[in-house]
Design a protein around this nucleic acid. Structure first.
Lengths: 252, 252
DNA sequence: CGGTTTATTGACCTGGCTCAATATGTGTGG
DNA sequence: CCACACATATTGAGCCAGGTCAATAAACCG
């Protein structure tokens, strides 16, 4: 297998290992998954609403977004997927897409056939559990988005999105840091239930904490940003000590 | 086992069967789950944020809500659970609660120990898959809530919530129907990211389609309500033909 | 360099919020 | 069955966060 593929799967495995206890055999099963590199153009539906999917998409570089929309066609981003995320993992058990998937900027992915994921999960119950758990973390994120959009004002919403994305990409609480954030202001608006005009104005108000330039975000004052965002990273379940990592079945 | 418990588990099994293909042995494993009846007072946290849970809660009558909140303490309901739902099913793989759970009105539940669910899932991979899939339907609902709160106006939000709840409770498209809906206007506000005052005013505007009284909703014009709500029930995955019901592993 | 996105800004408007008062339930104990 | 206490619903008046519309200005890209 090309080196690049293996590296992508390794990142995904690292993520699973952070929250689940997997045996070497199970870990190898993850690394042995077939993976087909692909590139996704921005702003084109990669998976359409209602489509049956055959692949899950492991993000290597870039960002994917899951989209819903209302009757008027206004779009709402319901989830972001950063490198290491398996977008569409839920489609392993629910292949009919309930929302559209597209890249927010040019994105490299690895396509992992459902067939392979399903068979690996069937052979290794603890792996199935780890995948299930990974989906549940995504659900916890979704739940936070409901709170974010429903009960926070414009500045907090954007700040929260930034804190979450930084944390999911592995940022720690450093005074000054930068991270990849290739969303346009219109896409930020679609993720936070706002208007691009108001995103623009709100970003100005946040300038003492964070600025966006090109494809990345520059945090000037992380503590301030966290405060503005009302951000508590517990829901991301990032730092589970080894003893707390769960496993449903005895090791093979 | 008392008759009432068995009936509750049967409703849950029916729900699993609607979307997953389970063998008789696997179905029996569901019915054999230990279940402890309990009653939940309204407006008291049954599961607190960050708490480790030992039980999943199968709703028998009433409604449970999952709550998040912002820094000011404004609450946001992120999910509703109606009879037949296993609230907290995700806690089987993620026992630390990432949101609080409380009853919205006096509610009867069956407590199902995680231990039993985990062991049943470990013994029957297809059952694990069915539970996983059930969690994914909840996630699809959550995703719709993001769209609802982010991109619909007040009337549509409430109409959508009502359509969803009616459909999840098994309602079909009848011209006139009633269904249980024991939420106060304040709780509707917390579910839709609004204010109770505005919920009150919006309900008046919806009177030609639906009225609320006591603990139930009375639909005068379902087609109108659906149109106002911009409601498409596909995401609820209710009517999967038997041939489409999935199973990850060969039958035992 | 030209064409297309994306960002920025101004002027104005409105849906939904806030604050506050009043009415209507609803459950409880006597 | 009544009366009280508390929760819930209803209504009015005024305000404001964020939306809409529209025009430039920058940035990006081939």
């Amino acid at each position: 297998m090309p080196h690049q593929n293996r590296a992508g799967l390794q990142v995904f495995l690292d993520r699973l290992n952070r929250r689940s206890h997997l045996t070497p055999v199970e870990q190898q099963a993850v690394l042995d998954l077939p993976a087909y590199p692909a590139e996704m153009e921005a702003n084109i539906d990669h998976v359409a609403l209602g489509e049956m999917t055959e692949f899950a998409s492991l993000v290597v570089t870039g960002v994917l977004g899951r989209f819903g929309q209302n009757a008027r066609g206004d779009r709402q981003i319901t989830a972001l997927h950063v490198p290491g995320d398996m977008a569409n993992l839920q489609s392993v058990v629910e292949p009919r897409a309930t929302s559209a998937l597209q890249a927010l900027s040019r994105t490299k992915i690895l396509k992992i056939p459902h067939q392979a994921l399903r068979s690996a999960a069937a052979r290794h119950p603890a792996l199935a559990e780890a995948l299930w758990r990974d989906c549940m973390v995504d659900a916890a994120i979704l739940s936070q988005w409901v709170v974010n959009i429903g009960r926070r004002d414009a500045a907090s919403r954007i700040a929260h999105l930034l804190c979450e994305t930084a944390t999911r990409q592995g940022a720690r609480e450093i005074q000054a840091l930068s991270f990849e954030f290739p969303l346009t202001q219109t896409q930020i608006a679609d993720a936070t239930g706002m208007t691009s005009v108001h995103v623009n104005r709100t970003l100005k108000a946040l300038r003492s904490a964070v600025t966006l330039a090109g494809r990345s975000a520059h945090v000037l004052d992380w503590a301030l940003l966290v405060r503005l965002a009302d951000f508590d990273p517990a829901y991301l379940q990032r730092d589970i000590e080894p003893g707390g990592r769960l496993r449903i079945a005895p090791a093979d």
